[in-house]
Design a protein around this nucleic acid. Structure first.
Lengths: 330, 330
DNA sequence: TTGTATGCGTTATCAC
DNA sequence: GTGATAACGCATACAA
């Protein structure tokens, strides 16, 4: 494994000159540049970035913390992040946190140890104060899920409006008794989506009924069991809005098992527009988030911080979209 | 940001001693150790691993190259890798290659630049010779998909037997006219699965019929269009084995659209046992790979290489399992 | 335009 | 047990 020294020796120049060639400095003559480049090729030299990183005290590496890579929602967000990162000479390090604050802290050590230059949280679990503290000392951005009042910028959607739009769609196609399937997590989005549901009912003079407000944990299984509970109700609703596609699919499966027809007997709305929704039978109506753009925006916010554009704490809410499919309209 | 120097000064010892404490060297007295630890706490000192990495010329970081994190197949494999990695003080860096050799090369630079200590390929796209060359110079393991004859160890399953088992299941439940949905990729697994199909037919005296051997690209959409083609055939098969669950689901959707009942009119087998198979309606019969264990084994092979257990080029084939669900048996 | 020399933060070798 | 000190590979301020 050859070093910059070897190259210098072979090319008959100093290491400084080699370094200049490596970094495209324009204050090096064409002739010596050629000389150096030949030496590099001859030795098959690859710079040891550990040296450079230490010297520059940066790694050109961004940490992305996501609950779980198996969640298909995040894949496109990551693509967006990667796109912008690569365009700017950064690499991305993806890490599973399992929605566990301890694991988040473990990975945050990479930041504190100077092994990554910044971090993008997809769904921070650590406490507000902790997040705020990190945000004060390092480049940090929240993407998709976020905590407010931390001073850490975020990119997301307006979950309240999105939820409102989803429920209004159910109302528009004639439903008056609409169940809600949420999550009792502390995630902002879960609460905002519930509030959107309530407001939509209110605006259309539908009474809020606590008995058809149910909770799951974002998974298919939780949706499935809620679906069965629903079918056992005396005054059964005719539609349901679930705040995750997986739960929506679980509900659909349970309802189909009971022999009901979707959407004729029962309509279901999901949230996120994961790819499965268009593979399912029936295809699932849902809310689409601009995932790729959210990823891009998040990475751009990190870059701003890295470039010391100290200025602005930003709150970016991008546009969502209603996707109407077979689970609500034939 | 304080350094080891600051700690040394505050504790009134040399940097060497601080370093010893940091690395749990046992040749340091309890008293001084306490002194140093207090200083560390007081300064909120975090070691800068860039220094350590340069000095030790290792990063305790492993690169994992996978086609796409959106493919749910890989999530559990990654979990297995992470488990073993963390137990041994390593971190894992996940990277999307989009099945593109260029992107693979880009990420391999991280290895050549000493930014990661080893690499696990989930489905290498680079040429054999290239892979062999990398394997000669760095710790490398192939996991799941692999190329033979490169000298690079791998962990996988016996795709031939797995496929044979899948087709035999269809034969066992009475099918004689069984379509095959493969992929024309150069992946070993694709070919072995086709061979397993052929052998199973042969062993049960069923004629191989080229007209019901079809190809897709692993995706739902390709399965969907093949499903429609299938339904248009004059001498329609009664069952199909797809070498990916997504394609199997695509076929199922197409068949249901034509009004056929599954499994009564048509049976479908998938491959991989992604979680979506047990959410679908019908739930999909498939072959389960020991994904978590494959990940663990792969990481263990990397560790062996890292520890200089130069010895053995290994080829590990773990056990698969037949999962019978509604798409083949009521 | 090029070379010399210093330091980034750490570990490890060698003295004591 | 502990302390000086020399690396690790590179980038850069300064000199020439």
């Amino acid at each position: 494994m050859s070093t910059i020294q070897d190259v210098a020796k072979l090319a008959g120049v100093s290491v400084a000159t080699v370094s200049r060639v490596l970094n495209n400095s324009n204050l090096v003559s064409q002739d010596t540049k050629k000389l150096v480049e030949e030496a590099i090729k001859k030795l098959d030299y690859q710079p040891n970035l550990l040296g450079r990183n230490l010297r520059r005290s940066e790694t050109k590496m961004i940490l992305v913390l996501l609950p779980n890579i198996s969640n298909p929602f995040y894949s496109k967000v990551v693509k967006g992040i990667e796109k912008v990162a690569h365009n700017n000479g950064y690499n991305v390090m993806l890490c599973n946190t399992d929605s566990d604050a301890k694991r988040e802290r473990m990975y945050l050590d990479l930041l504190k140890n100077h092994l990554t230059d910044g971090v993008i949280f997809m769904a921070p679990k650590i406490e507000k104060a902790e997040l705020a503290e990190i945000g004060k000392n390092y480049p940090v951005v929240q993407c998709c899920e976020y905590k407010e009042g931390t001073g850490v910028p975020y990119v997301s959607i307006d979950n309240f409006s999105a939820s409102y739009m989803a429920v209004k769609h159910l109302i528009d196609i004639g439903h008056r008794r609409i169940a809600f399937l949420g999550c009792e997590s502390k995630f902002n989005s879960a609460m905002q989506r519930k509030n959107g549901y309530i407001k939509a009912l209110e605006d259309h003079e539908i009474n809020f009924d606590d008995s058809i407000v149910l909770y799951g944990d974002y998974t298919f299984n939780s949706g499935f069991s809620v679906g069965h509970k629903l079918m056992a109700l005396k005054n059964r609703p005719t539609a349901l809005f679930a705040i995750s596609d997986f739960m929506a699919i679980g509900v659909i499966k349970a309802i189909k098992e009971k022999g009901l027809k979707i959407p004729d007997d029962f309509a279901v709305m999901g949230f996120d527009n994961i790819s499965f929704t268009s593979m399912y039978d029936p295809m699932v109506s849902t809310i689409s988030q601009p995932r790729y753009d959210m990823g891009r925006a998040a990475m751009e916010l990190i870059l701003k911080q890295l470039q010391g554009v100290q200025c602005n704490y930003e709150e970016l809410l991008l546009e969502h979209e209603l996707i109407i499919r077979e689970s609500t309209v034939k």
